[in-house]
Amino acid sequence: MNVDLGYTYDDNVTLGRTHDEILWDQSLALDGSASHAFRIRDNLRLVATGLLRGEKFDRYNRLSNLSGGLEAEIQYRQSGAFDAITYAAFARGWLDNYASHLRDGSHYSVGVRARGALTDRIELSGELAHNERHAQSEVWNVIDHSALLNLDYSLGDRGTLYLTGQYRRGDVVSDGHATLVNVSLAKVFVLDDAFPDQQWFAYRSGARTWISTVGYNLPLGHQASLDISWRRIQSTPTAHLNFDVQGSLRYVGNQYAIVLLKQF
């Protein structure tokens, strides 16, 4: 069983495009997961994991949420050799309950993964997934496809450095004013109940999104660690606007996180 307690500072919690649409916030999150492996054959097993997550935001409390889910993953490893690759197929479903009821709903992912060691210090993993989310408002009925590549570099007792790059193609949700650009990009929008004093609209649009993460995991004894990471999110709308737009259409956000991980 794993329990993680994390703090995140997000400089663009709205995934806003222009400076007057960008809000920052900080949050505390508590994650818990418990797994159980079922052996099927010597090199094939099923891992079932229960997931629970609570997140409390500081400035915009209606973004706070409680989610719970289940993941099932079938893992296959050709052999016990050091450089043997582990292949996996997974399905994961969450139920989401937000203080902003428009966001209430569920989300799930299905995909495949592969993981293997390149050297005794470097481990590489990759993932392809289909992701869907369904919510009270259609704005958060989001579908995307993602490809992820992760590289872990072990520093031995001093921990692990990791780099993650993820590409997502599909829907993103942003918040902003009811401007021509935003409405033109939007597939659907709604007055967002997470920012009740702002009269802001949340809108779903198609985008190409790059998420890059660099992090460092510092062991704290055998069953605990401290993880520090910086994640950069950049979305570029796929819709083509037939008029000149001042400034960029990109949405950029940065998340800085520090997480205490504890295994029981």
Partner: peptide, 21 residues
């Protein structure tokens, strides 16, 4: 907990405030 969330979440179907440009 998941069962309780399932009852609370109940997503889908759209909100009356949804607007399709």
């Amino acid at each position: 907990v998941v069962a309780a969330l399932m009852l609370a979440a109940c997503g889908g179907g759209g909100s009356p405030g949804d607007v399709h440009p």
